[in-house]
């Protein structure tokens, strides 16, 4: 068994210019260059991308679902952030 395993990388692909990079999946690679090449070979075989980002998974900091209450629920009642909160007469058609 190998002493050291290839680390895990997360792959983000831009499908076409104008769109954002989207998380496509992950893979293993020994270094960044290999991660990029592997991502090209694994995730864009069917013409899925025009740009790739790879980042080693350990560099991603994720929020903890048990904090979801304090992190995300406070935003739920701030309805004034949405346009539908404001009432306008029908004559003002597009605003």
């Amino acid at each position: 068994m190998s002493k050291k395993n290839w680390p895990l990388w997360e792959v983000f692909v831009r499908s076409k210019n104008g769109l954002e990079h989207r998380h496509f999946g992950s893979l293993h690679a020994a270094d960044a260059e290999m991660a990029l090449e592997n991502a090209r070979d694994v995730y864009t075989r069917r013409n899925e991308g025009v740009s790739i980002w790879v980042v080693e998974s350990k560099h991603i900091t994720a929020s903890n679902p048990s904090d979801n209450g304090e992190l995300f629920e406070p935003a739920q009642d701030k309805v004034y952030r949405h346009p539908t909160f404001y009432e306008l007469p029908n004559e003002v058609k597009h605003m």
Binding site: K4, W6, D31
Partner: peptide, 15 residues
């Protein structure tokens, strides 16, 4: 493939 995977890790560490 073990020697190949090990070599790639060793190379990455050197870089």
């Amino acid at each position: 493939g073990e020697w190949v995977r090990d070599a790639a890790v060793a190379y990455a560490e050197k870089q």
